[in-house]
Amino acid sequence: MFPLVDTLGFGTPTDYVLAFLLGIGFGFFLESAGFGNANKLAMQFYFRDLSVFKVMFTAIVTAMTGLVVLSSAGLLDSSLLYLNPTFLWPGIVGGLIMGAGFIIGGYCPGTALVGVVTGKIDAMMSVVGGMLGMALFSETYGIPAIARFYALETEGLTGTITLPEWLGVRPGLVAAAVLAVAVAGFWGSEWAESYHARKTAQA
């Protein structure tokens, strides 16, 4: 039955209208969570406001559970889904650079966009910086060592490999483990926030 784009076979114009509507939902919840404000986002990394972790992991667990349940019920053909390809080391190094950018600039690209439309000048600077960084990447791509590293694959961890495939276990088991980690993380987040609130009240 799902994905509908394949079963109903609607064309690109319809898919684009739906993409626009889905984006409205995405932007709405990002801004509603407070992610248009860099001060709130950065507090994640000082353990004072862990909304970034809470929102992100609640979203991952929600979508993941839906995908696993619908796929095992035979309602979703997961072979038709776009899966992120794994390029382990470029992904890790790129992630570390993004993490540095996050703590220095206070935004990631999606949150910066909802910052821009709610009037945050710092978010506008972040998007301008992002565009410059991306333009720089396309220029440094001409350096053979960088192009080679970008294409570097790690044996046994390539293509659209998923955690259940890699570990050789059922998707439901990995999903249960992710849920357990998320719940433990939520509990730890609540503890850290109340610990900091108590410390601030005493000071």
Partner: peptide
Amino acid sequence: GGALFGYGA
């Protein structure tokens, strides 16, 4: 920070 994020992304 935005530039770093863009490059890393």
